[in-house]
């Protein structure tokens, strides 16, 4: 009897979820993922959603253990690009449920402890680097190519 009741509950849950599904086929319960500044990941958002932890873990070990500061996936750049501004037009920390990492991780019920040690607020220097105009970058690249040849 108990089992029957449980299955019934699950069925209701599933139906409810289907009914809530929006036009893009996603449930309306899906978290509101804040948009990032800067260019999109070339790997695609779906790829990043599934693999970001592997990429970050790989690169964190590169930096911490081997001293490679030239990595592609560093937490401070995640935090800088994905900063979400609060009502005071300043980036919010992970204390706010609007924080990029938190909004999704809370939905997925996956606890992360990154921000016990890392700052959840963007580093102004990193932001400055990230917001450098692509044009300027290309010029710099061309210049570098010239001098190094």
């Amino acid at each position: 009897m108990k089992r029957l009741f449980a299955s019934f509950l699950i069925l209701i849950g599933l139906m409810g979820n289907m009914a809530l599904a929006g036009e893009d086929g996603k449930s309306s319960l899906y978290p509101a993922v804040p948009k990032a500044t800067g260019k999109a990941h070339p790997e695609g958002n779906e790829f990043m959603r599934i693999n970001h932890m592997k990429l970050m873990r790989h690169d964190r070990d590169e930096t911490t253990l081997l001293g490679n500061r030239d990595v592609k996936y560093s937490l401070k750049e995640c935090v800088a690009c994905h900063a979400v501004n609060g009502p005071d037009a300043r980036p919010v920390s992970v204390k706010s449920d609007k924080h990029f990492c938190r909004s999704c991780h809370e939905f997925a019920a996956v606890k992360i402890d990154c921000f016990q040690c890392h700052n959840s607020l963007p580093d102004p220097d990193v932001v400055e680097r990230l917001t450098m105009l692509p044009q300027k970058n290309r010029e710099l690249a061309a210049y570098l190519k010239e001098v190094t040849q």
Partner: peptide, 21 residues
Amino acid sequence: EFFKAGGAVATVALSSGVTLM
């Protein structure tokens, strides 16, 4: 390529295809 070419050039790759040298 830069790395191969450059001696005293340190480069930093940024998250989305932006490269800083």
